[in-house]
Nucleic acid binder design. Structure first.
Lengths: 242, 242
DNA sequence: CTCTTTATAGTCGGTAAGACCATAAAGAGA
DNA sequence: TCTCTTTATGGTCTTACCGACTATAAAGAG
């Protein structure tokens, strides 16, 4: 399968796909959307949702389309879709040459998963708890890279608000950091730091207050205009990252 | 040009290429390796070096091969090659569907450029000074993205040593930061910060000293084992990055 | 009514970073 | 030779921030 006609070169045609690592927060834990493969190879194994890039699409367009097909989410909600990197190992797919552009997506609230497309089943599974076995293809590595990217992203950018509904409390925002980093944060210090960063969040000036459960009702905030955090909101130092 | 045989799908074959933004420091200024295109489209325009991914290569392998072909550098020197992102706009190449995986590379000293491959000419041109017109294809955007990535990378990682020879002075290392960021840094504060970061640099214990020109001879250092900087070496706040 | 839970405000001490000064050691030029 | 310039290196000072901690307020659970 070799195509002539591009300058003086002969080149191998590749199939180009997108793979999506879609994260959300539910019950205070970070979860990722996984689908069960219905066909070989890796039939019955879990995998990241994804699909082929169509002839008239960019990878970004294809990723947004796949995300909408799998979750029903379109761009109207404040969702975040970010290109991660491209995985192009020659034998990453045993059938043929497939180059995959991976994306990390952050969605606020877990909507019902419609098992659209060819996915046998789809579900939000807690990340990093061993709740699922090894994924198909090289998706374990893609998922780990996506998690690292998201963890670094909420450190330097206002990305964390993408996990939250349009209006949220500072406790919910803190829950995002704790779920992604897997570490507890001091509520008072977190509050001081977030409010000291201009443009990160803005109070909903109407005396609107809301509480999900116990405790004193919290004030509501919405995402501010800033996109980067200066200075960054550093995560607590952990083992292995000196 | 549509290929059947992958599951039940029909998919469009893509050509996959790599594009390289190769940076170096010469005369205290940041320079990028550009080649002049010898054929249409964009004949005579400057472009980033690059080429096709061969059937048995990953994009990383292809990038390393192209870098070696263009500059004569192989992996033996402490060079840095990092995947940037993938550009897949459907009409980014007027001839056909080409998906390009872009890489950013950092090389220590400008070796002689061998105009290998199909590049008519190749040269190290100063970045961001208008010394070259608009680049071919979407390479202006790729180059800008690469510069932003390198600028952020030396903030959080030990990447800056990749611009330096195996042994270097702290003045040379500071020159890397100043050239990439386009801002002056206080020599004393820079020294304090770098030496306070464990594993960033290590003194060459032999009383070896060296000076390139005027001034007191500086002590020599080599890259340390650390890969990430904690805390990051923040660049001075500039306009437009609040 | 009391306990628990969460939000919010404030304090205190350590650390880091920027601005700045001082000294040392070389070359350049008068 | 002497002086000036240049660069490296060491130090101080002040401010800002950050983590740890305490205290208070306001709700629900029992």
């Amino acid at each position: 399968m070799c195509v002539q006609g591009y300058d003086k070169y002969a080149f191998e045609p590749f199939a180009v796909t997108v793979d999506l690592a879609v994260f959300t927060i539910r019950d205070g834990t970070l979860r990722v959307l996984l689908v069960e493969r219905g066909q070989d190879p890796y039939a019955g194994r879990l995998a990241l949702p994804g699909g082929f890039v169509l002839p008239d699409e960019s990878a970004e367009t294809a990723a947004a389309r796949e995300l909408a097909e799998e979750t029903g989410l379109s761009d109207v909600t404040g969702l975040h879709l970010e290109q991660l990197r491209t995985y192009s190992d020659p034998d990453r797919d045993p059938r043929m040459r497939v180059v995959s552009v991976a994306f990390a997506a952050l969605v606020p609230d877990p909507p019902e998963v419609r098992g659209g497309g060819d996915a046998a089943r789809a579900d939000w599974l807690p990340y990093g708890t061993g709740a699922y076995g090894p994924l198909a293809f090289d998706h374990d590595r893609i998922l780990a890279d996506a998690h690292e990217r998201v963890g670094a992203g909420i450190e330097n950018t206002c990305l964390a608000t993408a996990f939250c509904p349009p209006e949220f409390t500072l406790g919910e925002l803190r829950g995002v950091y704790e779920a992604v980093w897997g570490a507890g944060l001091d509520p008072a210090n977190f509050r001081r730091k977030v409010l000291a960063t201009p443009g990160f969040v803005e109070p909903v000036h109407g005396a609107a207050r809301l509480t999900g459960g116990r405790g004193k009702p919290a004030a509501l905030y919405k995402a501010g205009p800033a996109t980067a955090l200066h200075p960054p909101l550093l995560r607590p130092p952990a083992e292995g990252r000196p």
